[in-house]
C-alpha cells in the first residue's frame, strides 16, 4: 500500500487508498480532512498558527490560518465535497518542561485550527491534542482509520 509522508508545512491528498503519515509531531499539529463517501483524504503538517513574520508563503500547509482553505481546495479538485468533510487532528503538545522559554506554540496551533475549521463549517469529530508527548499520526484513506502513536504506549485509534 502506498505510504506518503507529510513533512512539516506540507499538504498531501490521496484518493481511494494509501496511507498518509506525519512523524514527529511535537508542537506541530497533523490535521486530517476526509470525505468518506468520495474516499478523498488529506493531511496537513501545521507548524505555526500564522505567518507572523510575513513574506512569501509558498507552503500554505505550514500555517493554521492558510492550511484549511488550501486543503479544501486540493481535495475538492479530486472529487471531495466540502459539506461532507470531517476533520480529525493530533499534536500540539508542549514537550519541554521547566523552562518558560518555549512559548506554548502547540496550544496556539490547536486553537487556531479549531477556529479555522469552525469558520469553514467543517466538524472536528475527534482529536488527540496538547499534553507533553510527541506523536506520530497514520491515516488510512481507504478505510478512514486514524492511529496515533506515542513512544512507549499502545497506538490509539482516533
Amino acid at each position: 500500500m502506498e505510504e506518503v509522508f507529510v513533512n512539516i508545512g506540507e499538504i498531501k491528498v490521496l484518493t481511494q487508498e494509501g496511507r498518509l503519515v506525519a512523524v514527529g509531531l511535537g508542537s506541530c499539529v497533523g490535521l486530517i480532512l476526509y470525505d468518506a463517501l468520495a474516499k478523498v483524504g488529506g493531511m496537513a503538517h501545521v507548524f505555526l498558527p500564522t505567518n507572523r513574520k510575513g513574506g512569501d508563503n509558498p507552503h500554505p500547509g505550514k500555517f493554521a490560518d492558510t492550511a484549511v482553505a488550501a486543503m479544501v481546495e486540493q481535495m475538492t479538485a479530486l472529487g471531495a465535497q466540502k459539506r461532507r468533510l470531517k476533520a480529525k487532528m493530533a499534536g500540539g503538545s508542549q514537550l519541554f518542561s521547566y523552562g518558560a522559554s518555549v512559548m506554548d506554540v502547540g496550544r496556539q496551533n490547536v486553537e487556531a485550527l479549531q477556529r479555522e475549521l469552525q469558520t469553514a463549517g467543517i466538524p472536528l469529530v475527534a482529536s488527540d491534542v496538547l499534553g507533553s508527548r510527541g506523536r506520530k499520526l497514520i491515516f488510512d484513506v481507504g478505510t478512514g482509520q486514524v492511529l496515533v502513536f506515542v513512544i512507549g504506549q499502545e497506538p490509539v485509534e482516533l
Binding site: 514527529g24 507548524f47 505555526l48 514537550l95 519541554f96 518542561s97 521547566y98 523552562g99 510527541g134 506520530k136
Partner: peptide, 26 residues
C-alpha cells in the same frame, strides 16, 4: 540565557518544537 527547558521524546518532535519556538523561516 533563559532557564533551560528539557524534554525527552522523538527527535523530530523535539527539534521541530524548538524550531517552532524560534519561528524559523524556511
Amino acid at each position: 540565557p533563559s532557564v533551560p527547558a528539557v524534554a525527552v521524546d522523538m527527535a523530530a518532535a523535539v527539534w521541530s518544537s524548538i524550531l517552532a519556538g524560534a519561528e524559523v523561516a524556511d
